[in-house]
Amino acid sequence: MNLYQQIAGAVESFVKRELTELSADMEKGDVDAWERCRKWLHETVLHLAPLSEEHGGVGLGEQELCGVLLELGKASASFAVALLSHYAGIYVLQSLNVTVDRNMFYASAGLLSHHVIAAPFIHNAVVVEAGRVELVTGDQLRERSNQVALLGLQGCSVFVTTSDVHAKELGELNLHEQKHIYARVQNLLAAVAVGNAMDALRIAEGYANERYQGGDVIIRHGIVQEILGRMKAKVLLSEAGVLKAAAGGTEDKLMARALAAVLCEEVCVDAVQLLGGYGYMKDYVVERKLRDAKTIAALDRGSTALFKQVIEEKLL
């Protein structure tokens, strides 16, 4: 068994064993639940997954990282995005040849979103703005910046940095590097969206197999079969696009991200629709899946702008 298979096994088992159960508490901002996740990351060294082996990391490739985030995204998109924000910070630091502290949890702004989206246990945030990279401590963020809540990804700490926040300048990324990291992060974000949608599909299928209407389980109704079929196709297409783009160039990654986010949002909208009134209630997880999917789709500049950006940049 190679390293990735071991990691994949560990992730799958954590998702099934703990994360699914913890996710509801994490959404409410339960510190203990987030702390459990932090410990698990330390145990598995997954917080250093994108860091190269020569720098003491695991050195997972992009496709493998997609697999990890997809799996985590099935149980908790909030946790997966917070981890991705940390990975984005590591990407930038690596690119600037700044030593990554193995015990620190980073977050980022300017790659995933304009805001700092972080796990509550964040230590430092790497803020990228027009190529300039600055490091802001978590305490500074908590004390001096505005904290906001988002439609989805609840439980994450979201900061809008202000000029009051003192930052340490780390250096500058050239345009090519910045674009490259941005595209990688966006594609990984799409992997979270796919995981989230896969779980919504699983729940919708389960419900359709149990719910009786019109004298039969609804999965036997033609319209429900069609909806589920479309959902499956969308998930399949998104997953394939994201994994293929992980090995592709910047353009592929951005297009895969934009399309996957749109399709995965549609899957979650359909999942809520299939569950009807139950799907709209907070007790049923699909409601959260929809909010998370919409938030992921709209992060940064949203999918509409991304589609345009890909072609626009090609013309420049």
Binding site: S113, H114, H115, V148, A149, L150, L151, G152, E265, V269, K294, T295, A297, A298, L299, D300, R301, G302, S303, T304, A305
Partner: peptide, 20 residues
């Protein structure tokens, strides 16, 4: 509504902005 949220990006998903 979905398209407006998408158009506004980060701002569109902020709680309290009426669009979300």
């Amino acid at each position: 509504c979905s398209r407006v949220v998408d158009f506004m990006g980060d701002e569109g998903v902020k709680v309290g902005n009426e669009v979300e």
